[in-house]
Design a protein around this nucleic acid. Sequence first.
RNA 1: GGAGAGAUGGCUGAGUGGUCUAAAGCGCUCGCCUCGAAAGCGAGUGGGUGGGUAGUCCCUGCCCCGUGAGUUCGAAUCUCACUCUCUCCGCCA
Length: 427
Amino acid sequence: MLDIRLFRSEPDRVRQALVKRGEEPGVVDDVVRLDEKRRALLVEGESLKRRRNQVSEDIARMKKQGQDTGALVAEMREVSDRIKAIDEEVRGVEGELQALLLAIPNIPHDSVPVGKDETENIEVRRWGEPRQFDFKPKPHWDIGVNLGILDFDRARKITGARFVVYRGAGARLVRALISFMIDVHTRDHGYKEIYPPFLVNRDSMVGTGQLPKFEEDLFKCRDTDYYLVPTAEVPVTNLHRDEVLDASQLPIYYVAYTACFRAEAGAAGRDTRGLIRQHEFDKVELVKFVRPETSYEELEKLVGDAEDILRRLGLPYRISQMCTGDVGFAAAKKYDPEVWMPSYGRYVEISSCSNFEDFQARRAGIRFRPSAGAKPEYVHTLNGSGLAVGRTFAAILENYQQADGTVVIPDALVPYMGGMKVITPER
RNA sequence: GGAGAGAUGGCUGAGUGGUCUAAAGCGCUCGCCUCGAAAGCGAGUGGGUGGGUAGUCCCUGCCCCGUGAGUUCGAAUCUCACUCUCUCCGCCA
């Protein structure tokens, strides 16, 4: 959520930000109009309340002295009715205002390239060389099914499309990847491990920005207020919702594994084969709470932490920077690490690292006290995948496949696989 | 799921219709005292949102005693609903 004061002092800046994102700027005028109306009502209502407070004291005093208060009481009855009507009107206006503000995206940082959609994202850097195969490489769904470590057919039976069953060395590889990633981030990058609930309430979803705008992307549990998490970002960022953190606690780094559940409402027909786009997938997520002045260096470090996993796994990747048209509702700046996927013949998103500045913090009420006695200020929040486990699994199968259909396990994972160096067919 | 108890400021805890602009204690900050510290003494100590003003200084209003509604001239206090916490019972990995 943007600061309402920004609409008062720099409405043009908000309009320009919306235009850069390819959205209609007209909503800014609606916000300004409602804000003015709200303040006018507040001034009127509060002056009446002031009078009521004063007169109520007078009445108490007069009654104590046995004086007649009938006329004042009658007058206050009317004043109270008027206050009630104004308060109701204020609530209505605030409701409208809040609804608008919650649906307005963040302002892209000045360093974000202007562009209309994903075709105008820019490549920042590359690491590693895509391997030259001396045989025809297979897509990961064929490799995995042939090895007996992926079972899409039975997943379709027990649940439905866009689900998968991992078997044997496949199941172990998932577990190995999760442990490996968390170990690297906790041991070498300074993150604290968190294991949060996979169901969260509506307030949490509003806090990080999934709601109210993107309801159709989420799975909701019937007859409850609970949603399945689409990413660990939601429960972990909301850990500190409505808190005032001590400045000495910052920066806070968290790493969390969760399963992630996404309805993929707008993706019908896309990536229908394999592990790339599932309704349920595993992800190790990095979340930071930082002082505002440090958030852009923290973003670069965050991307570096995600990249480190890719390097240790020996997977070729590149870093894309999202343009204004593709930067995401809540983010001010976003980088997507993308892994080389031989079956696609291109780089595929395997992480997404964003600086939200105070956009989420304002929604979720996450503040810190810059110094003893100072007023609380909003923190900046950041997060990024480190990494998406299903896509990492797919990338390992494809990039480490051999002509005979077996898959070499990257050295870094061998200890997590109980010493296994190659995945051979499972019975 | 059943029965009961409860929700007040950073914490403990008083307060059952009108100086509650919430007692007291603890904690914290500052000052005095001290070589320094402790003790003691004194002062201060929340959040939100408006107005005045160029201003995060200052002046000033309104709101906040779990949440929401109601009664009343006036609600922490009375009524109703809801949420959450705790205790006991039942069920359960």
